[in-house]
Design a binder for these strands. Sequence first.
DNA 1: CACCTTAATTAGGGTTTCCTAAATTTATAA
DNA 2: TTATAAATTTAGGAAACCCTAATTAAGGTG
Lengths: 158, 158
Amino acid sequence: MILNQDVTSLYSRKLEDYLEAILVFTEKKGYARTKDIAVWLKVTPASVAEMFKKLDKEGLVTYRKYEGVTFTSKGEDVAKSVKRKHEILKEFLEIIHIPRDTADKDACVMEHHLHPKTIQQIKKFVDFVKNAPVSPKWLDHFKEFCKTGKHEYHNKKE
Amino acid sequence: MILNQDVTSLYSRKLEDYLEAILVFTEKKGYARTKDIAVWLKVTPASVAEMFKKLDKEGLVTYRKYEGVTFTSKGEDVAKSVKRKHEILKEFLEIIHIPRDTADKDACVMEHHLHPKTIQQIKKFVDFVKNAPVSPKWLDHFKEFCKTGKHEYHNKKE
DNA sequence: CACCTTAATTAGGGTTTCCTAAATTTATAA
DNA sequence: TTATAAATTTAGGAAACCCTAATTAAGGTG
C-alpha cells in the first residue's frame, strides 16, 4: 500500500488536526458539529465556526450553518491520509515501548510535517516487526536493555 | 546522561529554532549576528531583530544593538537541550535508513514537541544499537526486508 | 575626515489561529 | 405555542511570526 501523504502536505498542522477530528465524528454519525470539534480539540465553538468556513472555502468540507460539516471526497482523502500516518507512527512508538497515551499524543505531533519517505520507512520498520515469522528476539533484548542498560549478548560471554 | 528537556518545553517551536541557530554561531565565534541567523533560518533580518528582542526579554540571550546576541546560561541550556534532542533523533532516523539530509530536517521537526519520555526512549533505542557488542543481525535483516519486503528467516525455512 | 557600502533597526502590514462577548438560530418543554 | 435553554455564528481583538520599505548606524577607504 502506497502512502499518499503528498496529498496532505499542502495544509497547515492545525487544518489537518481539524480534518482528523472531523473524521472521528463523520465515521461515527456521518457529520460533525461545531460542539463535537470544540470539545475534541479543546477550543471554543467560535474557533471551530471560523475553521469550518475556511475548510469549506478550501473545498474540503461542506458546511451548512447551524448544522455542521460533512466531507467532500477531497477532504475525506486528506483526513484519512493523516489518520493512516497517525496510526503508523503510534504503532512504531508502541513497539519501542512508549506508553499508549503518550504514543498517541506524539504521533499527533509527528504526523504533520515528517517527510513522506520517513513515514514510509517507519512503516517498513513496523511491518518488519509485525510480520516477522517469529517474535523477534532483538525486541526482547531491547526490553532487557531498557531495564538494565546492558546487552544480554554481552552477559553470556562472561 | 539525563535529558533535560523539560527545560525547553515552555518555548515555542520557532523560538527554539532560533536558539538552536544561535548556538551554531556562538560555538563558532562566541556570538551570533542578525545576518548569521537570517541566512541560516532563511528569514529576513527584520524578523531576526524582532526575535532577538524577544529572546532578550525572556532572559535567554543578551542583545546589544548592532552587535548581536550572546547566550545567558539559561539560554545556552535550552539551546543545548534542543541540540541534544536533535542529534538523538537524527541518529535514530539514520539507523532506520532515512537519508542523512532528510533525517536532519525531520529531526528538526520532531525535536520540539515530543514528550521527554519519548525522546529518552528513542535514545535508548539508539544506544541499544550503537553499543551492541556485535553489529546487530536484525538490522541486516531489516535492510534486506526494505529491499525485498520479505523476511530472511522465513526464506531459510523453505 | 567624509563618503560609501553593508548591516541592522524601526515602522507599518499581513496571515493564522485563538479568544470573549454579543447576537442569532434552533431545540425543548411547560 | 411561546418562553427559555442550548448551540452557533459574528464582531472585534490579541499573540506569534513573517514581510517590505524606509531609516539609521558601523566599518573601510581614499
